[in-house]
Design a protein around this nucleic acid. Structure first.
Lengths: 217, 217
DNA sequence: TTCCATTTTTGACGAATGTCAAAAGATAGA
DNA sequence: TCTATCTTTTGACATTCGTCAAAAATGGAA
């Protein structure tokens, strides 16, 4: 879902730390980070906030694990606390990476999660990652109980839509070089954390072309 | 906003009828068409439905008029009753058409309407058209009064997001020929109602290339 | 450190698409 | 109907980008 990542305010580095278990105390602190992130969309009441607290569960995965594979139904929306993910699908035998997610991004297979139909895409961990998950059922329960959470989601969708619109225009009407330079400006951290082959795919060009573009700067 | 139009269930033709004024009686009938359309997203109560009735105003435009021009703030969301519109923006001196709207589509400059910042795009009438408009303020009023309208909008956004995602993948990862053939399958009516030059732009290819692709079928 | 596997770079070539210009065709108004 | 204007087609050529293959560089594990 993170279609047009901006810099997320961390120093670019490749994650090498071991994954650790969290105490309840720490869980609370980390979920508050999630809530803080959420509040940049729409400011929730204490009550709604607590309800969200109670619905998110921590999940931990290792590098190269899959959060979702083609054909399965995506039943969760995730908040990515630490790590890097990619979404990709198969086109004529080739893997096409169409998005990445980084710290503080919401992640899901949008189409499958919304429609509850089998996913077309795969979601893979590019590093060991810590995520917080909410099930579709729990999310629906929240939406029924709190109009403000419905509003939050509506506003989040608006922002994600605008970003995707921007990315669409880039994809269809700009050259490979312009797309790469745009990435350099908008998401330089991506280059530090994702193999170039995946980035080439993300930009809609071959690895060789990306390499040649990069050699010109 | 109509990024991925499907067939809308009317016989393809070029509109040549004169525009006519509507009595209150007819206005009611036509707005019911709008409500019917809306109910394919989410089923409203009679009360919420009436509130929507009261917020939409009819507007009529002539061919080549502009609904919105670059730099202006888009203050309305429109429902297109009859006619054809295109959304386009300027890139390096060239007009880039990135969407069309047809009967029963919702239309707005999404980015500008949501953020209330100056629009990047223009919206132009490709034929005389009848639209129904709701202002941002009135829409907000409805959203505050009826959770179900908030939900309707949330669900509408989900559908529009999924369509745009699909179109994005098309744009970035398919060839010009595949994109044209896809258009033939998904929106054949478009070819009957829009000059080829605009369609080429919409598909992200030059008019000459589209002409050559078409000559091969 | 050394070795193996993976990723990235480089070169040669071909296919797809854009650009410019001119001709042909379609449309709208007098 | 005729004409002026706009749209579409066609041709020649340039450019961008993809593909295949091999070399170089990098990263991880023993």
């Amino acid at each position: 879902m993170c279609f047009y990542c901006r810099h997320h305010g961390f120093k670019p580095y490749r994650i090498k730390q071991p994954l650790i278990e969290f105490s309840k105390q720490v869980k609370k602190a980390v979920i508050e980070q999630l809530i803080t992130q959420i509040k940049t969309y729409y400011n929730l009441s204490a009550e709604a906030e607590q309800a969200m607290h109670d619905c998110f569960e921590q999940v931990v995965f290792s590098k190269n694990d899959y959060l979702l594979t083609e054909g399965k139904i995506c039943r969760h929306l995730y908040f990515l606390q630490q790590g890097v993910l990619r979404g990709f699908y198969n086109l004529d035998g080739k893997d096409i990476t169409h998005w990445f997610a980084f710290e503080n991004d919401f992640v899901t297979s949008f189409h499958s999660f919304i429609t509850q139909q089998p996913a077309i895409e795969n979601i893979q961990l590019l590093s060991g990652s810590i995520l917080w998950a909410i099930s579709k059922d729990n999310l629906n329960r929240l939406l029924n109980q709190y109009q403000e959470i419905e509003r939050l989601l509506r506003i989040a969708y608006e922002k994600y839509y605008i970003r995707l619109e921007e990315r669409f225009v880039n994809a269809q009407f700009k050259t490979a070089t312009e797309r790469y330079q745009n990435l350099l400006l908008q998401s330089p951290h991506m280059l530090e954390r994702v193999p170039l082959g995946y980035i080439a795919s993300y930009l809609g060009i071959s690895g060789e072309t990306l390499s040649r573009i990069r050699s010109r700067f």
